[in-house]
Write a protein that binds this DNA or RNA. Sequence first.
DNA 1: CCTTGACTTAGAGTATACTCTAGGTTTTAG
DNA 2: CTAAAACCTAGAGTATACTCTAAGTCAAGG
Lengths: 142, 142
Amino acid sequence: MGYSIGQVAKKTGLSVHTLRYYEKEGLLPFIRKTSSGLRVFSDDDINWLGMIECLKATGMPLKGIKQYIDWYHQGDSTLSQRLAMFQQQEQNIKAKMQELNTNLAKIQYKIRLYDAAVKQGSLDKAQQEPEFRAARLRLFGH
Amino acid sequence: MGYSIGQVAKKTGLSVHTLRYYEKEGLLPFIRKTSSGLRVFSDDDINWLGMIECLKATGMPLKGIKQYIDWYHQGDSTLSQRLAMFQQQEQNIKAKMQELNTNLAKIQYKIRLYDAAVKQGSLDKAQQEPEFRAARLRLFGH
DNA sequence: CCTTGACTTAGAGTATACTCTAGGTTTTAG
DNA sequence: CTAAAACCTAGAGTATACTCTAAGTCAAGG
């Protein structure tokens, strides 16, 4: 039920430095401390770290995550702000996925091109092939 | 055919500061300068900036992009390194897309949950509903 | 010719997110 | 009881990617 900072570091893959930094930034406001000052993480705290990872991995800065935690702290009066935040984040994720898809196509063109170039020992020769000229025009517009 | 740094900034959405910074970091080694020192960007340079954006948007640090440009500069002897780099980048993109998908599902759960919470005026009440308990267990494991 | 705006370099400053160090305290295993 | 491992705080240092400033040069319109 109670974990030390080192145990949490192992569990989450974050360093103890990072965990202390997150607490200092207000991202872990629920952590208890023993009378002698040692942090004691609960299962709830681990779950919070999971949510922090989720928001971080989808591009939210720590300040944005802190805002969410502050709203959570303020209780049900901030439900609509939190809903709006998640809706915005959904849009951000979808836009990022779109962008990744577009750029994946460009990278995959480069893989096909360089595959041909390696086989022929020349990038110029490969680039001259009609197949690659057409794909380049379609993907890069030149 | 030749563009000033200001024209390129408008074209690409990057600032003139950023363009100079990229040149300083070795990301734009082909740019010509007039006898009086002004940068003249060619269409090829604009295309390079497009590739830089593509690699940057898919998570490659500027150092990695510089490595690619250095390999390009060295000619056909580095074709296989460049191929390997693009293949690695493809894997990175696919992993990132996977991660985004997983986290999108979590965010969308939160949207459904907060939507219900806003309607009821209480997060606790919404969280108690069997539908949300089940989804939470599936997505977050708790 | 002159002013205005865009350009130049070198170097300093900023934001974000860690990451580490120093010096000290607490816990745990033998 | 003691030594090693793990913990603590405060604050400094690092990496990345810009972003801006100062002081000056260049180019185009009137």
